[in-house]
Write a protein that binds this DNA or RNA. Structure first.
Lengths: 335, 335
DNA sequence: CTGAAAGCGCTAACAA
DNA sequence: TTGTTAGCGCTTTCAG
């Protein structure tokens, strides 16, 4: 392993000069710089990032902590984060927490031990609630969720608005018994529930307790909850789910019961996925600008790393309602 | 930031003793150990991993270099890798290369600079071909692709066999004009083509040049290539694609042309995805044990890190053929 | 079983 | 503009 000493010797300068050339290149005579670069080239020298980190007390790595990379929303966000980080010369450290507060704490601590430059984090409600008390030694940007009134950079969807529009869309298309399956681990699920409720109330309706449920944000939970909904004495005529995993479970359940979409029940959800536009009928949904979310979060983080004192910023993005067949206007029926 | 010195002082011992207690705990009197642990607890001390790395010349981080985390195959593999690494106390550094050999080289170098303990890598054909000449200072486990006769640990599917079975399945179900869309960047695409060809030959058929194409392993390329296939004077009666992205593009094209699956054309592919079982008809495919692949690769890597001299191992896994509606037996037709 | 001391490779004062 | 020097926080000989 060739070190900075070898380069210094080969170029006939001190290690400090090599370091100068490689870091900013300022305050070095052109000819000396040339000699150093030549030695670097010849020896195929690459600075040891670990040593650099230890000395400078900062790394070129950022952390991304999400519940599960297999959730298409996070898959896409993570790709954007990695792209953007790469462009700016940063690497990416990835963690899955499974919405488990303990794992969140472990990973947050690991990030600290690794001395990362910053972290992009999508916390559970529990961790979000205690967020103010957790003072990390690195900047954090929150994505997809909200964290009360803590002073942090945040990038998320206008969830209440999005759910409101999605629900209103159903109401306008003639649906009345609208059920909702909301993720129970995040603020996001709660907020989307609020938008749903608000839309119903605006219409003079109220959500029925047995039709609006908070469940684990997973496919199986979506399947189970939908089965129960469908087996009720007064099953819903429309179902709203707050993420694509719940929707996939719901769709499976609806298919298994032999029900038609939207004839027997409409289905709408959040998050664009490959399957949502490929199934018949295609699924109406609120598409999040996932790539933009990841990109914006990373940019915000890198700016804060560069300038820790800058005022925090909350970026609230609007979802795009994609109206498709799964919520086609209901035929008028007697009663 | 509390350091090992603070702990040493608080416990009334030397830093060496603290280090001993924290690393293996051996050769330390029980009472001293207790005092040290107490101090650690009290001060909420956490070892600085960067300093530890610099000194010990090894990290607890492994790298994962794939073409695109959004490919469901890699999404699932990466989750398994992260899980397994986490269990063993390792962190994960994630890189997307977009099948770009330059990016592959950059990331491989970055891994070296970061002093990672090892890397799990899915290389392009180009990089795989030169693999023997690239002597990394860290262990590498190759996944999903093969690398000639280099001495490396590898975990991959028996691609020839899988494609052979998939094609044979089509033949047995009465399809004769079977087209194939294969990824052009990886050895995997080539191998799957071989299996496809072999199955045809076994049946006394030969792949038609205009029906077997190597294309970029992306949805758009799958769409474009399928459109061309369908517009030919003698369109195929079945289409095999070698990954789920190509399949998604193919399905879109088939739908757009208003063709029925499998009536007008059968569609089969590789990789289980959410959508493959949700569309109508569901898609026949070879399911790869993605989680097992990621897990096995990680275990292999960690074993090699622990024992660099151990003999290399090639783990070849069989795919599972899931027969579904998209390749239902063809009705006998005159001609 | 424990401590002293060297040094991993680099950067950043401080001198010159 | 350049070199000297002192560590960053930790592990690991080597003595004792």
């Amino acid at each position: 392993m060739v070190s900075i000493k070898d380069v210094a010797k080969a170029a006939g300068v001190s290690t400090a000069t090599v370091s100068r050339v490689l870091s900013n290149g300022e305050h070095v005579r052109a000819e000396v710089r040339r000699r150093v670069m030549e030695a670097v080239e010849q020896l195929d020298y690459r600075p040891n990032l670990v040593a650099r980190s230890l000395r400078s007390q900062q790394t070129n790595t950022i952390g991304l902590i999400v519940s599960d990379i297999r959730n298409p929303f996070f898959t896409s966000v993570s790709r954007a984060v990695e792209d953007t980080a790469y462009e700016k010369g940063f690497g990416l450290f990835l963690c899955n927490t499974d919405e488990n507060p303990e794992k969140e704490a472990i990973y947050l601590n690991l990030m600290r031990d690794e001395n990362v430059a910053g972290v992009i984090f999508s916390p559970t409600r529990q961790t979000a609630a205690n967020f103010a008390s957790f003072n990390a030694p690195f900047p954090i940007v929150i994505v997809d969720r909200s964290v009360g009134n803590a002073e942090v950079d945040v990038v998320l969807l206008d969830n209440v608005d999005a759910a409101f529009r999605l629900t209103t869309h159903l109401l306008e298309h003639g649906y009345r018994r609208i059920a909702a399956l909301c993720g129970d681990m995040s603020t996001t699920g709660k907020e989307r529930y609020s938008g749903y409720e608000k839309a119903l109330r605006t219409c003079g309706l109220a959500p029925l307790a047995e039709q609006a449920k908070f469940v684990q944000p997973r496919t199986e939970a979506g399947y189970d909850a939908t089965m129960k909904l469908l087996d009720a004495s007064q099953p819903p005529d429309a179902l709203l789910t707050t993420n694509s995993l719940l929707a996939a479970g719901a769709l499976q359940a609806i298919r298994e019961r032999g029900l038609a979409i939207p004839g027997d029940i409409a289905l709408v959800t959040f998050d664009e996925t490959t399957w949502a536009s490929l199934v018949q009928p295609p699924i109406t949904l609120i598409a999040q600008p996932t790539y933009e979310i990841g990109q914006t979060a990373t940019e915000l983080l890198l700016k804060r790393i560069a300038d820790p004192g800058r005022p925090t910023r909350q970026v609230i993005l609007k979802g795009r309602l994609l109206e498709r067949g799964s919520s086609a206007a209901r035929r008028q029926t007697a009663g």
